[in-house]
Protein backbone atom coordinates (compact mmCIF):
# COMPACT_ATOMS: atom_id res chain seq x y z
CA UNK A 1 0.00 0.00 0.00
CA UNK A 2 2.95 2.30 -0.51
CA UNK A 3 3.03 4.05 -3.87
CA UNK A 4 6.02 3.71 -6.15
CA UNK A 5 8.51 6.56 -6.01
CA UNK A 6 7.58 9.61 -8.06
CA UNK A 7 8.77 13.12 -8.76
CA UNK A 8 6.65 15.81 -7.18
CA UNK A 9 5.99 19.26 -8.61
CA UNK A 10 3.85 21.95 -7.05
CA UNK A 11 3.20 24.83 -9.46
CA UNK A 12 1.46 28.03 -8.38
CA UNK A 13 -0.16 29.15 -11.64
CA UNK A 14 -2.11 27.44 -14.42
CA UNK A 15 0.65 28.20 -16.93
CA UNK A 16 3.25 26.66 -14.68
CA UNK A 17 1.02 23.66 -14.18
CA UNK A 18 0.56 23.12 -17.90
CA UNK A 19 4.29 23.45 -18.37
CA UNK A 20 5.03 21.04 -15.55
CA UNK A 21 2.69 18.52 -17.13
CA UNK A 22 4.39 18.96 -20.49
CA UNK A 23 7.81 18.48 -18.95
CA UNK A 24 6.74 15.57 -16.79
CA UNK A 25 7.12 13.06 -19.58
CA UNK A 26 4.77 10.30 -20.54
CA UNK A 27 3.77 9.15 -17.09
CA UNK A 28 2.79 12.44 -15.54
CA UNK A 29 -0.35 12.73 -13.43
CA UNK A 30 -2.16 15.81 -12.26
CA UNK A 31 -3.29 15.67 -8.66
CA UNK A 32 -6.17 17.71 -7.26
CA UNK A 33 -7.46 16.50 -3.89
CA UNK A 34 -5.80 13.13 -4.36
CA UNK A 35 -8.88 11.33 -3.06
CA UNK A 36 -9.12 9.12 -6.11
CA UNK A 37 -5.59 9.29 -7.42
CA UNK A 38 -3.71 8.40 -4.25
CA UNK A 39 -5.63 5.18 -3.59
CA UNK A 40 -4.99 4.01 -7.14
CA UNK A 41 -1.30 4.83 -6.69
CA UNK A 42 -1.20 3.01 -3.41
CA UNK A 43 -2.64 -0.06 -5.04
CA UNK A 44 0.03 0.50 -7.70
CA UNK A 45 -2.54 0.44 -10.41
CA UNK A 46 -0.94 3.69 -11.41
CA UNK A 47 2.67 4.61 -10.90
CA UNK A 48 3.19 8.03 -12.43
CA UNK A 49 6.79 9.15 -12.72
CA UNK A 50 5.73 12.69 -11.90
CA UNK A 51 2.84 14.05 -9.87
CA UNK A 52 1.86 17.65 -10.51
CA UNK A 53 0.03 18.86 -7.41
CA UNK A 54 -2.45 21.64 -8.20
CA UNK A 55 -3.02 22.40 -4.53
CA UNK A 56 -1.16 25.71 -4.64
CA UNK A 57 -2.70 27.08 -7.83
CA UNK A 58 -4.74 29.84 -6.24
CA UNK A 59 -6.39 30.98 -9.47
CA UNK A 60 -8.09 27.59 -9.80
CA UNK A 61 -9.84 27.93 -6.50
CA UNK A 62 -13.04 29.68 -5.53
CA UNK A 63 -16.33 30.73 -7.09
CA UNK A 64 -17.04 33.94 -8.97
CA UNK A 65 -20.05 35.57 -10.53
CA UNK A 66 -19.84 36.49 -14.21
CA UNK A 67 -23.33 37.76 -14.89
CA UNK A 68 -25.30 34.88 -16.38
CA UNK A 69 -22.68 32.38 -15.43
CA UNK A 70 -21.22 31.10 -12.22
CA UNK A 71 -17.57 30.13 -12.55
CA UNK A 72 -16.31 27.46 -10.19
CA UNK A 73 -12.57 26.86 -10.01
CA UNK A 74 -11.62 23.23 -10.58
CA UNK A 75 -9.65 23.18 -7.33
CA UNK A 76 -12.56 24.36 -5.21
CA UNK A 77 -13.08 21.62 -2.65
CA UNK A 78 -16.39 19.90 -2.07
CA UNK A 79 -16.56 21.53 1.36
CA UNK A 80 -16.05 24.98 -0.15
CA UNK A 81 -18.74 24.34 -2.76
CA UNK A 82 -21.22 23.35 -0.07
CA UNK A 83 -20.51 26.48 1.96
CA UNK A 84 -20.37 28.94 -0.92
CA UNK A 85 -23.13 31.58 -0.93
CA UNK A 86 -23.01 32.06 -4.72
CA UNK A 87 -23.45 28.35 -5.32
CA UNK A 88 -26.29 28.30 -2.80
CA UNK A 89 -28.00 31.10 -4.64
CA UNK A 90 -27.45 30.20 -8.29
CA UNK A 91 -26.54 26.52 -8.46
CA UNK A 92 -28.12 24.90 -5.47
CA UNK A 93 -28.29 21.57 -7.27
CA UNK A 94 -24.50 21.38 -7.15
CA UNK A 95 -24.41 22.04 -3.43
CA UNK A 96 -27.17 19.54 -2.79
CA UNK A 97 -25.39 16.79 -4.72
CA UNK A 98 -22.01 17.62 -3.24
CA UNK A 99 -23.42 17.19 0.25
CA UNK A 100 -23.98 13.53 -0.58
CA UNK A 101 -20.41 12.97 -1.76
CA UNK A 102 -18.26 10.81 0.48
CA UNK A 103 -17.57 11.85 4.05
CA UNK A 104 -16.57 15.11 5.69
CA UNK A 105 -12.86 14.34 5.53
CA UNK A 106 -12.93 13.43 1.86
CA UNK A 107 -14.99 16.52 1.09
CA UNK A 108 -12.34 18.70 2.68
CA UNK A 109 -9.76 17.47 0.19
CA UNK A 110 -11.66 16.25 -2.85
CA UNK A 111 -12.36 18.90 -5.46
CA UNK A 112 -15.15 19.74 -7.86
CA UNK A 113 -12.78 19.63 -10.83
CA UNK A 114 -11.14 16.43 -9.64
CA UNK A 115 -14.48 14.67 -9.42
CA UNK A 116 -15.39 15.77 -12.96
CA UNK A 117 -11.97 14.91 -14.42
CA UNK A 118 -12.06 11.52 -12.72
CA UNK A 119 -15.40 10.81 -14.44
CA UNK A 120 -16.40 7.87 -12.32
CA UNK A 121 -19.85 6.76 -13.54
CA UNK A 122 -20.91 6.45 -9.91
CA UNK A 123 -19.61 9.93 -9.12
CA UNK A 124 -22.35 12.39 -8.27
CA UNK A 125 -21.10 15.60 -9.82
CA UNK A 126 -20.79 14.67 -13.50
CA UNK A 127 -24.55 14.12 -13.84
CA UNK A 128 -25.20 17.44 -12.15
CA UNK A 129 -22.79 19.25 -14.47
CA UNK A 130 -24.56 17.59 -17.38
CA UNK A 131 -28.03 18.50 -16.16
CA UNK A 132 -26.99 22.14 -15.69
CA UNK A 133 -25.35 22.32 -19.15
CA UNK A 134 -22.08 23.33 -17.57
CA UNK A 135 -18.98 24.02 -19.64
CA UNK A 136 -15.45 22.93 -18.84
CA UNK A 137 -12.59 25.32 -19.40
CA UNK A 138 -9.50 23.35 -20.23
CA UNK A 139 -5.93 24.62 -20.52
CA UNK A 140 -3.25 22.88 -22.54
CA UNK A 141 0.00 23.64 -24.29
CA UNK A 142 -2.00 25.07 -27.20
CA UNK A 143 -4.03 27.47 -25.06
CA UNK A 144 -7.52 27.18 -23.66
CA UNK A 145 -10.69 25.60 -24.95
CA UNK A 146 -14.19 25.22 -23.64
CA UNK A 147 -15.98 21.88 -23.72
CA UNK A 148 -19.69 21.47 -23.00
CA UNK A 149 -20.44 18.82 -20.37
CA UNK A 150 -22.28 16.66 -22.91
CA UNK A 151 -19.03 16.29 -24.90
CA UNK A 152 -16.72 16.16 -21.91
CA UNK A 153 -17.57 12.69 -20.60
CA UNK A 154 -16.47 10.09 -23.10
CA UNK A 155 -16.47 6.78 -21.35
CA UNK A 156 -15.92 5.04 -18.09
CA UNK A 157 -13.23 7.11 -16.27
CA UNK A 158 -12.47 8.88 -19.51
CA UNK A 159 -13.02 12.50 -20.53
CA UNK A 160 -11.98 14.57 -23.52
CA UNK A 161 -9.06 15.91 -21.49
CA UNK A 162 -5.91 15.16 -23.47
CA UNK A 163 -2.76 14.17 -21.74
CA UNK A 164 -1.12 17.47 -20.99
CA UNK A 165 -4.40 19.26 -20.40
CA UNK A 166 -5.67 20.61 -17.13
CA UNK A 167 -9.27 21.36 -16.21
CA UNK A 168 -9.14 24.95 -14.97
CA UNK A 169 -12.70 25.95 -14.17
CA UNK A 170 -16.30 25.05 -14.73
CA UNK A 171 -18.81 27.55 -16.09
CA UNK A 172 -22.32 26.94 -14.83
CA UNK A 173 -25.15 28.92 -16.44
CA UNK A 174 -27.40 30.41 -13.78
CA UNK A 175 -30.94 29.14 -13.83
CA UNK A 176 -33.14 32.07 -14.85
CA UNK A 177 -36.79 31.99 -13.84
CA UNK A 178 -38.69 29.87 -11.35
CA UNK A 179 -36.52 26.82 -10.93
CA UNK A 180 -36.66 24.11 -8.33
CA UNK A 181 -33.94 21.52 -7.98
CA UNK A 182 -33.40 18.17 -6.31
CA UNK A 183 -30.70 15.53 -6.15
CA UNK A 184 -32.04 12.08 -5.28
CA UNK A 185 -29.29 9.60 -4.50
CA UNK A 186 -29.78 5.96 -3.76
CA UNK A 187 -27.11 4.09 -1.85
CA UNK A 188 -27.26 1.56 0.89
CA UNK A 189 -24.90 3.17 3.33
CA UNK A 190 -24.51 6.83 4.09
CA UNK A 191 -21.42 8.30 2.42
CA UNK A 192 -21.17 5.58 -0.18
CA UNK A 193 -21.13 6.00 -3.93
CA UNK A 194 -24.40 6.19 -5.79
CA UNK A 195 -25.98 3.00 -6.96
CA UNK A 196 -28.17 5.28 -9.01
CA UNK A 197 -28.86 8.96 -8.55
CA UNK A 198 -30.97 11.55 -10.33
CA UNK A 199 -30.35 15.27 -10.59
CA UNK A 200 -33.41 17.29 -11.54
CA UNK A 201 -33.99 20.95 -12.26
CA UNK A 202 -37.56 21.97 -13.07
CA UNK A 203 -38.89 25.35 -14.21
CA UNK A 204 -42.51 26.06 -13.45
CA UNK A 205 -44.71 28.50 -15.27
CA UNK A 206 -48.38 29.15 -14.56
CA UNK A 207 -48.92 25.90 -12.73
CA UNK A 208 -47.34 23.67 -15.32
CA UNK A 209 -43.83 22.46 -15.98
CA UNK A 210 -42.19 24.58 -18.63
CA UNK A 211 -38.86 22.81 -18.72
CA UNK A 212 -37.12 19.95 -16.92
CA UNK A 213 -33.51 18.90 -16.98
CA UNK A 214 -32.65 15.51 -15.61
CA UNK A 215 -29.18 14.04 -15.18
CA UNK A 216 -28.65 10.37 -14.36
CA UNK A 217 -25.73 9.04 -12.31
CA UNK A 218 -24.46 5.51 -12.82
CA UNK A 219 -26.87 4.51 -15.56
CA UNK A 220 -24.07 3.93 -18.07
CA UNK A 221 -20.35 4.50 -18.50
CA UNK A 222 -20.97 8.25 -18.60
CA UNK A 223 -23.58 10.48 -16.97
CA UNK A 224 -26.72 10.71 -19.08
CA UNK A 225 -29.74 12.95 -19.55
CA UNK A 226 -33.17 11.39 -19.25
CA UNK A 227 -34.21 12.95 -22.55
CA UNK A 228 -37.47 11.06 -22.97
CA UNK A 229 -38.68 12.15 -19.56
CA UNK A 230 -37.52 15.70 -20.19
CA UNK A 231 -39.52 15.80 -23.42
CA UNK A 232 -42.59 14.32 -21.76
CA UNK A 233 -42.44 16.90 -18.99
CA UNK A 234 -42.08 19.94 -21.21
CA UNK A 235 -45.43 21.70 -21.01
CA UNK A 236 -46.97 19.00 -18.83
CA UNK A 237 -49.18 19.86 -15.92
CA UNK A 238 -47.38 19.92 -12.61
CA UNK A 239 -49.38 17.02 -11.24
CA UNK A 240 -48.17 13.84 -9.56
CA UNK A 241 -49.77 11.74 -12.30
CA UNK A 242 -48.12 13.61 -15.14
CA UNK A 243 -44.76 13.38 -13.41
CA UNK A 244 -45.17 9.70 -12.65
CA UNK A 245 -46.08 9.00 -16.27
CA UNK A 246 -43.09 10.93 -17.57
CA UNK A 247 -40.72 9.29 -15.10
CA UNK A 248 -41.57 5.90 -16.52
CA UNK A 249 -39.35 6.59 -19.50
CA UNK A 250 -36.40 7.74 -17.37
CA UNK A 251 -34.31 4.66 -18.14
CA UNK A 252 -34.84 4.91 -21.89
CA UNK A 253 -31.56 4.92 -23.76
CA UNK A 254 -29.50 4.06 -20.69
CA UNK A 255 -27.14 1.12 -20.36
CA UNK A 256 -26.57 0.48 -16.67
CA UNK A 257 -24.19 -2.22 -15.58
CA UNK A 258 -24.83 -5.11 -13.27
CA UNK A 259 -22.59 -5.38 -10.28
CA UNK A 260 -22.51 -6.30 -6.68
CA UNK A 261 -24.82 -3.49 -5.72
CA UNK A 262 -27.50 -3.89 -8.32
CA UNK A 263 -28.49 -5.68 -11.48
CA UNK A 264 -29.10 -3.60 -14.57
CA UNK A 265 -32.88 -4.02 -14.47
CA UNK A 266 -32.97 -2.95 -10.85
CA UNK A 267 -30.97 0.15 -11.76
CA UNK A 268 -33.52 0.91 -14.47
CA UNK A 269 -36.26 0.62 -11.92
CA UNK A 270 -34.36 2.89 -9.55
CA UNK A 271 -33.90 5.49 -12.26
CA UNK A 272 -37.65 5.68 -12.75
CA UNK A 273 -38.49 5.89 -9.08
CA UNK A 274 -35.77 8.40 -8.28
CA UNK A 275 -36.69 10.52 -11.28
CA UNK A 276 -40.27 10.67 -10.12
CA UNK A 277 -39.18 11.70 -6.65
CA UNK A 278 -36.60 14.22 -7.82
CA UNK A 279 -38.93 15.89 -10.31
CA UNK A 280 -41.79 15.93 -7.84
CA UNK A 281 -39.63 17.64 -5.25
CA UNK A 282 -38.08 20.03 -7.77
CA UNK A 283 -41.54 20.99 -9.02
CA UNK A 284 -42.45 21.90 -5.46
CA UNK A 285 -45.16 19.27 -5.10
Amino acid sequence: MIPAAFEYVRPTTVDEAVQAVAEGGEDVKVMAGGQSLIPVMRLRLAAPSTVVDLGRVAEMRGVRDEGDVLVIGAMTTHAEVIADPLVAQHARLIAEATETVADRQTRRRGTFGGALAHADPAGDLPAVALALDAEMVVAGPGGRRTVPARDFFVDYLTTTLDEGEVLVEIRVPKLAGQWGVRYEKFNRVAQAWSIVAVAAAVRRENGSIAEARIGLTNMGPTPLRASATEAALAGAGASPDAIAAAARSAAEGTSPSSDLNAQADYREHLAQVLTRRAVTAAAGL
Partner: peptide, 19 residues
Protein backbone atom coordinates in the same frame (compact mmCIF):
# COMPACT_ATOMS: atom_id res chain seq x y z
CA UNK B 1 -18.10 0.34 -24.02
CA UNK B 2 -21.69 0.27 -23.01
CA UNK B 3 -20.99 -2.47 -20.54
CA UNK B 4 -17.96 -0.90 -18.99
CA UNK B 5 -19.79 0.68 -16.11
CA UNK B 6 -19.21 -2.05 -13.60
CA UNK B 7 -15.68 -0.94 -13.07
CA UNK B 8 -16.86 2.18 -11.40
CA UNK B 9 -17.72 0.39 -8.30
CA UNK B 10 -14.35 -1.28 -8.29
CA UNK B 11 -12.55 2.02 -8.29
CA UNK B 12 -14.80 3.37 -5.67
CA UNK B 13 -14.07 0.37 -3.58
CA UNK B 14 -10.37 0.66 -4.17
CA UNK B 15 -10.57 4.10 -2.76
CA UNK B 16 -12.63 3.20 0.17
CA UNK B 17 -10.41 0.29 1.01
CA UNK B 18 -7.22 2.22 0.60
CA UNK B 19 -8.62 5.06 2.60
Amino acid sequence: SVAAGAAATATGVAEEVAQ
